[in-house]
């Protein structure tokens, strides 16, 4: 019983963290251009750090 008292809040907190993360991603436009995001990793940026 005592373990439950802190394990349940911990589990709920982690779940809520995930939910909040998803809602944030939704709000900040991460899902607006899924196809574009997939293609953009192929673009070489000019601003690579000089080695």
């Amino acid at each position: 019983m005592t373990t439950l008292v802190y394990l349940i809040p911990v589990a709920l907190f982690l779940g809520a963290l995930g939910l909040a993360g998803f809602l944030w991603a939704l709000r900040s436009g991460q899902y607006e251009d899924l196809d574009g995001a997939a293609e953009r990793i192929l673009i070489d940026r000019d601003d690579k750090p000089d080695l």
Binding site: L12, G15, G18, L23, L26
Partner: peptide, 20 residues
């Protein structure tokens, strides 16, 4: 976006309640 948010919230609640 309201629908997607609703799905997210309902999914979170359904998952946790189902565990309990």
């Amino acid at each position: 976006s309201e629908l997607i948010r609703a799905v997210a919230v309902a999914g979170f609640a359904a998952g946790n309640i189902m565990l309990l």
